[in-house]
Structures are given as structure tokens and as C-alpha cells.
């Protein structure tokens, strides 16, 4: 058998493996990854893991402080806070994922179009995002969610619109710097169509900032979802969601502070983990930016 030289194995390392190897060097990023994995696991299997159902009421035990039976206490209907938080993870994560997905899909597509075709189309698209960008994201989300009358779907739209601009700008900038390069010309001379050039040749260049942008957008999505639900523009009351739990807890903060503290810490931990993972990914994907 022929032995392979170590240099060859290094060169054969795929981009994924290389990034993974670099990511593993950052303790915070691995911490973030593990925490997110645990929270996703809990959200998916909430019906097996939660000690009680999300709507199980025990009015004789309402507002019980944390104890053996109810590790995080109960709310004003005698519902177990821990179980509601576990089920709530489903809504909170789902909102962040769907809103980010929509923002990437619409934002990146419009950014590709704007960058590649330029001209009038580019002007219309980018000026539209200038206007959207003039309104702070949370205000925009409030305005849109109010128009949609709240609810889960309204929350998806409200949160995604604010995120589209940054994805559009990101992809447009990459397209602008890549579209006149020789390899694109080569692809064109091979009779590749616009769509093929955009998706197969230009889009991979934007993947690094896009991946980092996605983790940040997920974090922002969780924060925005909790804010909207807290002010009553998100999910409707009996549905457990982290922000909705905070909104219930607020009324009892004077005497039962754990109703506010526990959901807040979970939100913070989730967002913190996403930020750590995002920072780790940014360093791993682009070593030049390390430590900045």
C-alpha cells in the first residue's frame, strides 16, 4: 500500500473540517454550541421531558415558590413554570428560525439581484432597505406586528423584515466585488446562465458572512420574539413562550420574583450561546478577523 504524504491530507481537508477544527479551539464557541444543542433537544422532546403539561392547572397550588415538586415554582394559575419554559422553547426557537429563514431567503435573493443586475432595479431594492433601515428593528417589528394583529405568523413577518436589509447588503457587496472577476467571465464563456453563475459561482463567496449573520439574526430573533410577546403583540396568552411568561410574571414581581427571573435567564443564556457561537464561527471562517 502506498503511504499518503501528510501534506496531501491537509490539502484534502474540506472547508467544513477546517472550520470545525478552528471552531473547536474556542472554548466559548463550544460552550455555546453545547447549550444550544441542549435547548433544541429540550424543545423537541418537551412532551417527554417536562414534568407537567404546559396548561396543567392546579389552582390549589398557585404561586408556589420553587420546591421539589415544582423546581421553578408555579404561576397564578398553578401551572408549573419549568414545564411552561420547556414548551415555550418551541415557540421561541421556532420564531427565531422561521424569521431568520425568511430574512435570509428574501434578503439574500434581493441582494443577489441588486448586485448582479444593477441599474434601476438595484436602486429600487437598496433604497427600499434604506427606508426600512431608518426605523430601529424593534419599532419596525412593533409597527408590523400591530398591523398583523399579533399572533405567531404576525411575529414571523414582523421580525423577519427588520433582518432582511443586512442580508441584502451583505450579498450585494459580495456580488459587486465578484461579478467582474475572471472566473465569472470563464463561467459565462462556458455558456452558463445568470442563475447558474449567481448560485453556483458567486453565492459561495458570501457564505462566511452569511453564516455569522444567521447566528446573530437567530439571537436577535429570540430577543425580538420575547419583546413582542411581552408587550402583547406576540403569541396569544395561554400559549407558553418565554416573553409571554415574563409578561405574566411582571404582575407578580413584587412577591414572586422567580416568575420573572427564570424565563429571563433562559433567554439570556440562549442568546449568549448564539453570540458565542457566532463569534467563534466568524473567527473560524475568517482568521484575519480573530480577536477583533
Amino acid at each position: 500500500m502506498r503511504k499518503k504524504a501528510p501534506v496531501t491530507t491537509l490539502r484534502n481537508e474540506t472547508r467544513f473540517h477546517e472550520t470545525w477544527r478552528r471552531l473547536c479551539k474556542s472554548k466559548l464557541a463550544i460552550f455555546g454550541l453545547i447549550v444550544i444543542a441542549i435547548i433544541v433537544f429540550i424543545a423537541i422532546f418537551a412532551n417527554f421531558l417536562a414534568p407537567y403539561g404546559p396548561d396543567d392547572q392546579d389552582l390549589s397550588r398557585m404561586l408556589t415558590p420553587p420546591c421539589k415538586e415544582f423546581p421553578l415554582g408555579t404561576d397564578d394559575f398553578g401551572r408549573d413554570t419549568l414545564s411552561r419554559m420547556m414548551y415555550g422553547a418551541r415557540i421561541s426557537l421556532l420564531t427565531a428560525v422561521v424569521a431568520t429563514g425568511m430574512a435570509v431567503l428574501v434578503g439574500a435573493t434581493l441582494g443577489l439581484i441588486a448586485g448582479y443586475y444593477g441599474g434601476f432595479l438595484e436602486n429600487v431594492i437598496m433604497r427600499f432597505f434604506d427606508i426600512i433601515g431608518a426605523v430601529p428593528n424593534i419599532l419596525l417589528a412593533i409597527a408590523i406586528a400591530a398591523t398583523m394583529g399579533g399572533g405567531l405568523f404576525g411575529m414571523f413577518i414582523a421580525i423577519s423584515v427588520g433582518g432582511m436589509g443586512s442580508f441584502a447588503r451583505m450579498t450585494r457587496a459580495t456580488v459587486l466585488s465578484e461579478r467582474d472577476k475572471e472566473y465569472v467571465e470563464a463561467a459565462r464563456s462556458n455558456n452558463a446562465g445568470d442563475l447558474r453563475i449567481l448560485l453556483k459561482y458567486i453565492l459561495p463567496n458570501v457564505s462566511a458572512p452569511l453564516i455569522v449573520g444567521i447566528t446573530q439574526s437567530l439571537a436577535a430573533g429570540i430577543l425580538a420574539a420575547s419583546t413582542l410577546s411581552y408587550i402583547g403583540l406576540g403569541v396569544v396568552p395561554p400559549t407558553p413562550e418565554w416573553g409571554a411568561l415574563l409578561s405574566i410574571g411582571r404582575a407578580w414581581i413584587r412577591d414572586y420574583p422567580y416568575l420573572v427571573t427564570a424565563p429571563g435567564i433562559v433567554i439570556m443564556l440562549t442568546v449568549f450561546s448564539l453570540f458565542c457561537l457566532g463569534d467563534g464561527l466568524r473567527d473560524a471562517l475568517d482568521p484575519r478577523l480573530r480577536g477583533r
Partner: peptide
Amino acid sequence: NIFAVIGASMPQFWFGLELSLLFAL
């Protein structure tokens, strides 16, 4: 650095609630 990330991770209104809980109540 870690404090900065934690600061950005908190829902702002929750931070306000916790501050008023501790310092005022």
C-alpha cells in the same frame, strides 16, 4: 468581553425589571 456579550444577550426590559426588583423592591 464576556460582560459585553452578556449585556447584549439580555432582553432590555428584563434587565430593567431585575434592576428595579433588586434596587427598588
